[in-house]
Amino acid sequence: MAQVEIYTQPGCPFCHKALLILNAKGASVKEINAPKGTKEREEAIERSGGRTTVPQIFIDGQHVGGCDDLQRIDKSGELDQLLAS
C-alpha cells in the first residue's frame, strides 16, 4: 500500500475528516503535527506549492491537496488507485 503523509493541527475538523477517510480505506498514515508557526507547517507549505491551510496530504510523495481534494478523488475512485500503488 502507498505511503500517506498528512500535515495536521490539533482541533482541525478538516484534518479529522481527512484522517477518517484515509483510515476507512485502511491506509497507513503518517500524521505530522504542523500548527501555525512551526517548521513542520513551513515544510507543508513548501511541499504543497504554497498552500497555507491544513490538512495537506501526500500519497507516495505526490501532493493530492487538502480535505476537499481528498473527498473529490475518493468519490471519483482515484483515491483507491493511488492507495493501491
Results as ranks from 00 to 15, higher is better:
residue 1 M to I: 08
residue 2 A to T: 10
residue 2 A to H: 03
residue 2 A to Q: 03
residue 2 A to W: 01
residue 3 Q to C: 00
residue 3 Q to T: 08
residue 3 Q to Y: 00
residue 5 E to N: 10
residue 6 I to V: 15
residue 6 I to H: 05
residue 8 T to H: 01
residue 10 P to E: 12
residue 10 P to W: 00
residue 10 P to L: 04
residue 11 G to M: 04
residue 11 G to S: 08
residue 11 G to E: 09
residue 12 C to S: 14
residue 12 C to V: 04
residue 14 F to G: 01
residue 14 F to D: 05
residue 14 F to L: 10
residue 14 F to S: 05
residue 16 H to C: 03
residue 16 H to P: 00
residue 16 H to G: 00
residue 18 A to D: 04
residue 19 L to S: 02
residue 20 L to N: 13
residue 21 I to G: 04
residue 21 I to K: 02
residue 21 I to S: 05
residue 22 L to V: 11
residue 22 L to N: 06
residue 23 N to C: 01
residue 23 N to V: 09
residue 23 N to Q: 14
residue 24 A to G: 14
residue 24 A to I: 00
residue 26 G to W: 09
residue 29 V to T: 08
residue 29 V to E: 07
residue 30 K to D: 11
residue 30 K to L: 14
residue 30 K to M: 11
residue 30 K to T: 15
residue 31 E to L: 01
residue 31 E to N: 03
residue 31 E to R: 09
residue 33 N to D: 15
residue 33 N to W: 05
residue 33 N to L: 13
residue 33 N to F: 06
residue 35 P to C: 10
residue 36 K to A: 14
residue 36 K to P: 09
residue 36 K to F: 14
residue 36 K to Q: 12
residue 38 T to Q: 05
residue 38 T to S: 15
residue 40 E to M: 04
residue 41 R to H: 15
residue 42 E to I: 00
residue 42 E to C: 01
residue 42 E to P: 00
residue 44 A to V: 03
residue 45 I to C: 06
residue 46 E to K: 14
residue 46 E to F: 04
residue 46 E to T: 13
residue 46 E to V: 09
residue 47 R to G: 06
residue 48 S to E: 02
residue 48 S to A: 12
residue 48 S to L: 06
residue 50 G to D: 07
residue 50 G to A: 09
residue 50 G to L: 10
residue 51 R to K: 12
residue 51 R to Y: 13
residue 52 T to V: 13
residue 53 T to D: 04
residue 54 V to I: 12
residue 54 V to Y: 00
residue 54 V to P: 00
residue 54 V to M: 06
residue 55 P to C: 06
residue 56 Q to M: 08
residue 56 Q to W: 05
residue 57 I to C: 03
residue 57 I to T: 06
residue 58 F to Y: 13
residue 60 D to K: 05
residue 60 D to T: 04
residue 60 D to I: 03
residue 61 G to M: 07
residue 62 Q to N: 14
residue 62 Q to P: 00
residue 62 Q to D: 14
residue 63 H to N: 14
residue 64 V to Y: 02
residue 65 G to N: 07
residue 67 C to M: 05
residue 67 C to I: 03
residue 67 C to Q: 05
residue 67 C to E: 03
residue 68 D to T: 13
residue 68 D to E: 13
residue 69 D to I: 07
residue 69 D to H: 11
residue 71 Q to L: 11
residue 71 Q to M: 12
residue 71 Q to I: 14
residue 72 R to E: 11
residue 73 I to L: 12
residue 73 I to C: 02
residue 74 D to A: 13
residue 75 K to C: 00
residue 75 K to H: 12
residue 76 S to G: 08
residue 77 G to K: 03
residue 78 E to M: 10
residue 78 E to A: 13
residue 79 L to E: 03
residue 79 L to F: 08
residue 79 L to M: 09
residue 80 D to A: 15
residue 84 A to W: 00
residue 84 A to G: 09
residue 85 S to F: 00
residue 85 S to L: 11
